[in-house]
């Protein structure tokens, strides 16, 4: 009786081991492809493979992944992976910066668990919320939602999600600044930071999201 159950378990786990071996590499490749796609969305055109030029940057006790995009050997932009706590869980975003101007090039949401139809609108590339970040230079713009005294219009009824997304972008910008202040390389042309954007991560409770 136990023997037959044992045999079944053994056969099944052997079968799984085989399938796992076959799918392991494609799954890894799919994950890398996803990261590359997110990077390609947020930085100017490049010709290297940014997922292979990754560095870890420590800032305020958190470590961020920074991908460098190059075109013909020149650095054209940086993509910073950043996250913040949203309404339904962590929101992970990829924020791209234009190396020439020091402005945000574009943003992309990697994963989130916000409410569909409300907070999930942060993924809407065509919506007003995400569009307001395009080409912004946070030096001249306060990366906070208007409710907190900043310049970002929050999504209606989704203040917490909007705030989390904004603070993730702000954190990414601080990483980008620390990246440049460490470099003496003037040809990257990015603006030298004077002040860092205040981290406006805020867990204040709200009745609406």
């Amino acid at each position: 009786m136990l023997l037959s159950l044992g045999v079944i378990c053994l056969v099944c786990s052997a079968l799984l081991a085989v399938v796992y071996q076959f799918t392991k590499d494609p799954i890894d490749a799919a994950t890398v492809a996803k990261t590359n796609k997110a990077i390609a969305e947020v930085v100017p055109a490049f010709d290297n493979v940014p997922s292979e030029e990754v560095s870890e940057v420590e800032l305020d006790g958190t470590s961020y992944k920074v991908y460098t995009a190059k075109s013909a050997g020149q650095v054209v932009g940086y993509a910073v992976e950043s996250s913040a706590v949203g309404f339904g869980g962590p929101i992970n975003v990829m924020v791209g910066f234009d190396a020439a101007t020091g402005a945000i090039y574009n943003t992309s949401v990697i994963s989130h668990s916000e409410t569909p139809g409300l907070g999930a609108k942060i993924t809407d590339a065509a919506g007003h919320f995400r569009e307001q970040f395009l080409g912004l230079n946070p030096r001249t713009f306060s990366l906070k939602v208007k409710k907190d005294g900043g310049d970002i219009d929050a999504i209606t009824a989704s203040t917490i999600s909007s705030r989390a997304f904004t603070s993730a972008v702000a954190a990414a910008y601080n990483v980008f600044l620390s990246l440049n202040s460490g470099e003496t390389d003037a040809e990257s042309g990015a603006s030298k930071p004077a002040e860092t954007v205040a981290d406006n991560q805020n867990n204040e409770e709200e009745s609406n999201e």
């Binding site: 037959s4 159950l5 079944i8 378990c9 099944c12 786990s13 079968l15 799984l16 399938v19 796992y20 799918t23 494609p26 799954i27 799919a30």
Partner: peptide, 19 residues
């Protein structure tokens, strides 16, 4: 035994879907 067989197939589908 049935549960083990079913869960093996579920895991296979899971791995294939990830790809």
């Amino acid at each position: 035994s049935y549960i083990v067989i079913i869960s093996a197939f579920v895991t296979i589908i899971q791995l294939l879907m990830q790809v």
